[in-house]
């Protein structure tokens, strides 16, 4: 780990001030991605801005038909929250499968979504549920927010404050884990919200993406069989020592089918 300055601001405004003034400053919440990168000397920030003291980033509540989760909500909190379980059980259950117990008690939803690791779990839920990303400056639709591997619409110095999820009629998630890292190798989150179906695929490609053919099929008939016949193209999917693009394409269909089963 290289040396860096450490800041622990008490408000969003103070945090944004530090981050805006220094393009090489990095915010940290649970640290489950940044800390390993620092330890491996893969990242050399001038300063690290610890968000954990900012009350405005905390809390889980239901408001106006929306589920609002503060950026600092830990995966474990989301998985155990009665509010989340009541509104979107699939989201609570997804959070309970992230990493391991240690990771779930440190990692946060804001950190995961801002990082946009293609193999992370949350981006699929955010995308499929058509959630809105609330930052200190604006509101961003999920479709506009995720912009490919480790890239989002967040601008330098902009801070993710909360995520607003519409409450779906049905939602489900299934994933195949990478055997070594246990990150997502191919996952599918399916949701029907206000009669509209969205299917988001994570793990398989360079970033989370919507599977529109599956959305059409599920719109016509909300059933596992409806997606079982929809093939995912292997083009542009990841290929590595754990599996070919063709394998991942196949898994996308299998996981979509299982996600529909899970959604009930």
């Amino acid at each position: 780990m290289y040396d860096f300055e450490y800041h622990k601001p008490g408000s969003i405004a103070d945090a944004v001030k530090i981050l805006s003034a220094d393009p090489d400053a990095r915010p940290i919440s649970g640290g489950q991605t940044l800390l390993p990168a620092l330890k491996h000397r893969l990242n050399k920030p001038t300063s690290v801005v610890d968000l954990s003291g900012i009350a405005e980033l905390k809390g889980i509540r239901q408001e106006g038909g929306k589920l609002i989760i503060g950026a600092l909500a830990k995966h474990h909190e989301v998985s155990e929250s009665a509010v989340v379980k009541g509104a979107i059980p699939a989201l609570a259950s997804l959070a309970g499968t992230i990493g391991d117990t240690q990771v779930r008690n440190r990692g946060t939803i804001g950190g995961s979504v801002s990082n946009n690791d293609p193999a992370a779990d949350y981006p699929a839920a955010v995308m499929a549920l058509d959630a809105t990303i609330v930052t200190d400056k604006r509101r961003i639709a999920a479709d506009d927010f995720f912009q490919g591997m480790f890239t989002t619409a967040l601008e330098p110095g902009e801070l993710l404050v909360a995520i607003e999820f519409p409450v779906p009629e049905q939602a489900g998630y299934a994933k195949m884990r990478n055997p070594a890292s246990r990150y997502v190798m191919a996952g599918a989150f399916v949701a029907k919200t206000g009669g509209k179906v969205r299917v988001a695929i994570n793990g398989a490609g360079p970033g989370v993406f919507r599977q529109t053919a599956m959305e059409t099929a599920l719109t016509a008939s909300w059933s596992p069989d409806a997606v079982a016949g929809v093939k995912q193209s292997a083009e542009d999917l990841n290929s590595d020592i754990h599996g070919s693009a063709e394998y991942r394409a196949h898994l996308v269909t299998v996981m979509a089918k299982r996600a529909v089963v899970a959604a009930g």
Binding site: P179, A180, S181, Y183, I241, H242
Partner: peptide
């Protein structure tokens, strides 16, 4: 589970527990 993999250039692809199971 376990595969130690080098690529053709001699880089250790399975160089951490992220890739070595």
């Amino acid at each position: 589970l376990e595969a130690c993999v080098y690529d053709a250039e001699g880089q250790l692809v399975s160089g951490s527990f992220m890739d070595y199971q």
